[in-house]
Structures are given as C-alpha cells and as structure tokens.
C-alpha cells in the first residue's frame, strides 16, 4: 500500500516538474525564437528611434525605450543601493535597539509586498499636484520605491549573516562603528551585489510603476524633466496593437529585455563567486 503511494506520488512529482519546466520553457522559447526572427528581419529596430506613426505600424524602432530604461534603472539602482546600505547598517545592534529594528524591518517587508502599480499611482498623484507631466525624474523616483525595499532586505540579510567573530575582532582592534561597518560591508559584498542586481533586474522588468510616471514619450529622453519611456512599457503598448508588424516589435523588445535579465542574473552569479574569495568558504 505505502509502496503504491510512493509510486503514485513520484509520478505526480515528475508530472509537476514537467509542467513547471514546460511552461517556463514555453515562455522562454516563444520570446527568444519570435524575437530573434523579428530582429533578424530588421535589425535596425534596436538602433533607431521611432518615426511619427510608429505605434500605427509606421517606421522606426524602439531605441528610445532601451535608452530610457537605462537612464532610469541605473541611477535609481545606485541611489537605492546607497540608501539600502545605510539603512541596513542602522538596523544592526550598535545603532538601534531591537524593537526599532523590528519595526523598520516590518515596514520594509510591507513596502516590498506593495504592488508596484501603487507606487506608480503615488508618484503620479504627486506629479499632478505639482501640475507636471510624467518625466524621467519621476520614473527614477518610482523605481527607487520599487528597488529600495528589495535591496535593503538583501543587504540586511547578508550583513546579519556575517560571523559575530568578525565584528568582535574588528572592535577589539579599537575601531569605531563606521570603520567596523566598512569591514562588514566588504565582507558581505557578494550578498550586496547579488541583492542590487536582483533589484536592477526587477527595475528593468517593471512596467506598472513607470507607465504612469514617465509620460510614455516616443522620443529619446532629453533631460531629467523631459518625458521618456522604457522597454516593458513599450512591450505593453505594442502587444495591444492591431498591426502584426508592431506586435512583432513587441517580441523583439521582449527578446532584448530577456537577454538583459539573463545577463544580469548570470553576472550576479559569477560576481558572487569572485567576491567570495576573500571570505572563508564553507
């Protein structure tokens, strides 16, 4: 009887794993194959900016979206990384009491769980009250909201998991708290890098927080206060188009996006290996 159960469960497991892998491979396969075809047909779309009637099947490409994504994601990741390190250090026992740290961690968890569209709406209402249209700066702010809790959590986790002895020997050399904090940041650098790359990936892929806040421009971003757009927003708009050629562009954009994400996650793995050489391995 129990051997039969074992067998049935095993079959069910294999079915489940096939379902999981199959569905994910389906997504990967469709994006990569269709995107590749569409890029091969017309490689120019990556490097050109859209013409006047782009979303109606007109000329042009989506280079403005790639540029817009980069302009938004890179600064917001850098800012949130700096903020995250400072906050995570503050959560350590030298700086704040256990109660306060717990409350702050709860807030961070709530912010982490909040759907990004709410951040988008929040920034939008601020924009409206200043009578401004969406712009690059607003997009950066929305992405900081999105990334800050993610990166803070990762930094906090990797700082908290540094061995207690490291702190002890550092303090027993007569260092002040900042000096010890620097050592600890260095020791946990692999976790910090992994966290910020995960935040970076989320920011690259998130459309909901910036679809309201950047003004969905069809030109290259010109400055902090000019409107712009991002890759995932463009994919969303193109996918709903009636023109097959525009929908093909969506695949091409999705292809670029997926390649960026894959590169990010693979680099994060490699970097972690590289940075862990200074720490004691298991």
């Amino acid at each position: 009887m129990r051997y039969l159960e074992e067998k049935i469960v095993k079959i069910l497991m294999i079915c489940s794993i096939l379902a999981v892998l199959g569905s994910l491979l389906f997504i990967l396969f469709i994006t990569i194959s269709r995107g590749w075809i569409s890029i091969n047909e017309n490689p120019g779309i990556i490097f050109t900016t859209p013409g006047p009637r782009y979303l109606l099947g007109g000329e042009g490409g989506f280079f403005h979206a790639i540029a817009g994504s980069l302009y938004m994601v890179v600064p917001s990741t850098i800012i949130s990384l700096i903020l995250a390190c400072l906050i995570a250090l503050f959560l350590q026992s030298e700086y704040s009491s256990k109660r306060i740290s717990e409350i702050i961690r709860l807030f961070i968890d709530i912010l982490w769980g909040t759907p990004s569209i709410i951040y988008g709406l929040f920034v939008l209402t601020i924009l409206i009250s200043f009578h401004r249209r969406g712009c690059l700066l607003a997009g950066i702010v929305a992405l900081i909201f999105l990334e800050l809790p993610i990166i803070t959590r990762y930094v906090d986790e990797s700082i908290s998991s540094t061995p207690k002895e490291l702190k002890e020997i550092a303090y027993s050399m007569g260092l002040t708290r900042v000096e010890v904090s620097k050592i600890i940041l260095k020791y946990s650098s692999s976790g910090i890098i992994a966290g910020s790359l995960i935040g970076l990936g989320r920011a690259f892929g998130d459309a909901a927080s910036i679809i309201f806040t950047t003004g969905a421009a069809s030109t290259m971003p010109k400055g902090l206060l000019s409107s712009c757009t991002a890759l995932p927003v463009v994919i969303f708009q193109q996918a709903n188009s009636f023109y097959p050629s525009v929908r093909d562009h969506a695949y091409a954009a999705a292809f670029i996006l997926i390649i960026i994400i894959l590169i990010l996650s693979i680099t994060s793995r490699l970097l972690q290996k590289k940075f862990s050489k200074y720490t004691v391995g298991d």
Partner: peptide
C-alpha cells in the same frame, strides 16, 4: 572611550576570521 580601550585590549577569537582583504 571604547576605541581607545579596545586598542589597549586586543582579542583573538576562537575561530580565525581573516578580514576580507
């Protein structure tokens, strides 16, 4: 002042932990 005290009193811990450099 703690840093001053700890400069005078050093500690060697049970498990050797090299600084990450």
């Amino acid at each position: 002042l703690l840093p001053e005290l700890r400069r005078k009193v050093g500690l060697i811990s049970q498990k050797p932990i090299p600084l990450p450099t």
